[in-house]
Design a binder for these strands. Structure first.
Lengths: 331, 331
DNA sequence: CGCTCAAATGCAACCGGTTGCAAAAAGGCG
DNA sequence: CGCCTTTTTGCAACCGGTTGCATTTGAGCG
């Protein structure tokens, strides 16, 4: 049903090659034939079939965007930025929802079937095995929001979660909190592991601090709320560093529903700075992750790999920043 | 670099057709050759190239998922459900972010270049022209969350916004509110127009009700907050029906920051029932849109159109439901 | 005006598959 | 075992493009 190259060629009275070249950047066509072809194409409403050309060029301009974070509001912003930046570069995101997929091989197969030029794994909770599986299949891949490694085996762009932990600890200490706790996400999430590490590294190096820790079962409102309700049963801390913002809001909700006040009775600091954190009803003090930079950098990297698939793997880190709002007591 | 049909054929000692047929549902292959082919494919790690085959079959199994709602938390759930349901049916979502695109022709061109089998326009704010442009290009299309029309020219799946407006009005009346206002989204959004219509239809039919209306510039927290701050300057209403949940949260935030209480001083009812509406810090009374049903139905419809592109356009409506939470005073 | 050389063009093969068709193989039956 | 029918198989053309190569065209110049 759609118009093909051949029809345009016939109408314009030239060969198919001429038409193809007219639509190929930098190909050799005289102005005269180009005019003829463009006219015919215009009249017929012709547009080249990207998939057909991908067969010979080996480029589909399709980028697999794979994630399992479909319940973290931050990721709506992430998807927004990714899709727009990709589009701006003439690339198309093929979205893969990994929520109930645990086998990297399946994702690799799926995306190879669609000959994606590259893949971006956008998730802080997905196992590094996913990115590695793509690398092994020689598909250019970048793990965005992945775990920082000093000897990366796959391209990683994100933040230093250990440093974020330290930053949270220093912030709480500077506010004079002495009884301080970590309320992590899932114990096995690398982000939780790393944040915890940095957090306690600083706290343990400080005298007179009483610490404790616990873990929510997911980075979610419900998990945060449930865990905090539990904590409030017995001798809660003065301040908590929560695994992420959604978890923090769950915790806030638990605290408020017990009739306690934030920050007067308990302080909370989150991580991510999702859009809602600044909503006055939430007004969460948190650590901002520079998602725009992470995303731009990820795309740059995956684009660079299109030309140089064997590019040596690197880890790119962006610094985070404490955003002061209303859930910690003033200095 | 990836393994091709030919290589498998050579290794298995059969023709290329035999290999192709082995991987084609319902094709005629003897068990013996199928075994041989599968063995060879296995050893070589062969998987058929979906894009190449689409060239002859005319099916890519690609579905364009186009939206401009990348700032409404509800849409994270929407994307989650869409991508999962599509995947479950063996379809792949090609995501298009229309945030800064106003010309339907561009989207059509783009998606035609990628030979998508069908398109889902998922947006309540996008002009119906987008869906129509696809229809005119003879690309199967469904407008999800689109405007209900009694004489639909394009497949539409969604809710009856007029009825939602009535529902909101009845709810407010039943709580004894007499001074009632509409705080809409953008004036030109069809969802706002329709909700307003139903809302005032009921209110105007009731005696002794004082009404007023105003419009936020977007379905966003900031717009809702700004508008409500303005309203609070002079003689606010007793209760507001807000354009959607995000707007409602903005309004709530404005009210609270002025030292007023909800629902004691002012009542709010939203629309959508996004995940955060139930967060205790927000606890928004709202009208639930059955997004799961809308999405499943949309996909069913687009799938049905793959087989019957000329299917007569229909509008599918789902009923909404008031979700009682804490932002309206009790009966 | 003829010559050289670069630019433009068309031919034909190819990308990785599918499929109609005719030939070959297998199965059924007397 | 031979004959007829059904199933399986391979050939070759095709899907909608791209591209290397040889040929033609045309510009530039003495």
């Amino acid at each position: 049903m759609p118009v093909t190259l051949k029809e345009v060629a016939e109408k314009a009275g030239v060969s198919r090659s001429a038409v193809s070249r007219t639509f190929t950047e930098g190909a050799s066509v005289s102005l005269k034939t180009r005019r003829k072809v463009e006219k015919a194409a215009q009249e017929l409403g012709y547009h080249p079939n990207a998939l057909a050309s991908s067969l010979t060029t080996g480029r589909t301009k399709l980028i697999g965007l794979i994630s399992n974070n479909f319940h973290n509001p931050l990721f709506l912003e992430v998807f927004d930025l990714f899709t727009r930046s990709l589009q701006d570069r003439g690339l198309r995101p093929l979205l893969v929802n990994l929520t109930d997929e645990t086998n990297p091989a399946n994702s690799v197969r799926l995306l190879r079937q669609y000959s994606v030029d590259g893949v971006i794994v956008a998730s802080s909770t997905l196992s590094p095995e996913f990115a590695k599986a793509f690398r092994d299949a020689r598909v250019p891949v970048v793990h965005s929001f992945g775990r920082f490694a000093s000897a990366p085996s796959v391209h990683v762009v994100g933040i230093d979660n250990v440093e974020c932990g330290r930053m949270a600890a220093r912030t709480l200490l500077s506010r004079g909190y002495r009884k301080i706790a970590f309320l992590g996400g899932p114990k096995e999430a690398t982000s939780t592991i790393d944040r915890r590490l940095g957090f306690f590294e600083v706290l343990n190096a400080t005298d007179g601090i009483e610490t404790s820790e616990s873990f929510a079962t997911a980075y979610s409102f419900d998990a945060g709320r449930a865990e905090m309700l539990q904590l409030l049963e017995a001798d809660p801390a003065e301040a908590y560093f929560c695994g992420d913002d959604v978890l923090s809001v769950g915790a806030l909700s638990a605290i408020q529903s017990k009739g306690l006040r934030v920050p007067e009775d308990i302080g909370i600091i989150g991580l991510n700075d999702m859009e809602m954190a600044r909503w006055e009803n939430i007004d969460l003090t948190t650590i901002r992750q520079p998602i725009r930079q992470i995303i731009d950098s990820s795309i740059e990297l995956v684009v660079a790999m299109l030309d140089d698939p064997d590019r040596y793997p690197e880890a790119r880190l962006f610094s985070c920043e404490v955003i002061e709002r209303g859930t910690l007591r003033p200095r």
